[in-house]
Simulated scan of single mutants.
Amino acid sequence: MNKGLNPSTTTRRPDRAALFIAAVLAAIAGLIFWDVSRLSGAAGYSQVGPTTVPYAIACCLAGLAVWTVFAAFRNDFPEREHQEISPVIWIVAGLAAQMLLLNVAGFSIATGILFALTARGFGKRKLWFSLPVGIALCFAVWVIFAKLLQLSLPAGPLEHLFF
């Protein structure tokens, strides 16, 4: 017997990706709350101090986490498209290469590699073209920041060749 249930209505499970996002938001909020609690005595005589803005951000993130949980259980999120993993891998590889090479190869080469691999992730197939273009652009950025603005960026063999 059907017992009054409509067989045409299907109950979907909560959106697991949304619940994961809510958990990450709650974890970040908890981390900020913990960090702010260590600074509690720094307010001094005023009600507004160095803990005010981080505390407000943590409250907003906690509220977003709760909102995301409710949306996950109501299945309010639209159906997601299939995610292509190869562009993500190219971009993450570029970021990893930049972090690993920054102090060894210098800003221009390391960031030029990031530029080329990110361009590859976005569909530019000619690495032989995007790598030197990326290095040249990043060298120009290094010159502007390190020489004109006197900011400290890691210098490598290319930078030492010219300066």
Rank of each mutant, 00 (worst) to 15 (best):
F129L: 14
I109H: 09
Y55G: 12
I89E: 06
A72K: 14
W142V: 01
L100C: 09
F122Q: 13
L149Q: 10
I57Q: 10
L151S: 09
A56F: 05
A27G: 13
C60P: 00
L39F: 02
L31T: 03
W90F: 13
N75V: 00
L131E: 06
V48D: 10
K3Y: 05
L19Q: 12
L161V: 00
C138R: 14
W67I: 05
A93Y: 04
P78C: 04
K126Y: 03
F145E: 08
R80N: 07
L95W: 06
E81A: 11
S108W: 06
V143S: 05
S37G: 06
L158N: 06
A136T: 08
A116R: 15
L149A: 12
W34H: 10
T118C: 04
I144K: 11
A155V: 00
L25P: 03
L61V: 01
M1I: 02
M1Y: 04
T51C: 02
F115V: 02
S46W: 06
N103L: 05
L114D: 05
S37W: 08
I109Y: 03
D76T: 05
A17I: 01
Q150H: 15
L31Q: 09
G49T: 07
V88A: 12
T118Q: 11
G134M: 03
A23R: 12
V141S: 08
C138W: 01
L31W: 13
Y55A: 13
L114Q: 15
R12W: 01
S108T: 03
L148C: 03
N75M: 02
A119G: 04
G156D: 07
F77N: 14
V66I: 09
F77L: 08
P54A: 07
F145P: 06
P54N: 14
L64E: 00
N103K: 15
A72P: 03
A71W: 00
E84C: 00
L100P: 03
L102Y: 09
Q98A: 11
L31E: 04
F70C: 04
M99C: 04
T68I: 02
R125T: 13
N2M: 03
L137R: 10
A155N: 06
G49P: 06
L148S: 07
E159Q: 14
W142Q: 11
V133N: 07
I89M: 13
A140Q: 06
V133H: 09
V66D: 01
I57R: 15
Q98F: 02
S108E: 10
C138I: 01
L5I: 01
A110V: 01
Q150G: 04
G63R: 12
A18N: 10
T10L: 14
A23K: 13
L19N: 13
H160M: 06
N2V: 00
F145L: 11
F33E: 09
S8D: 11
W128G: 07
G134N: 08
V53M: 11
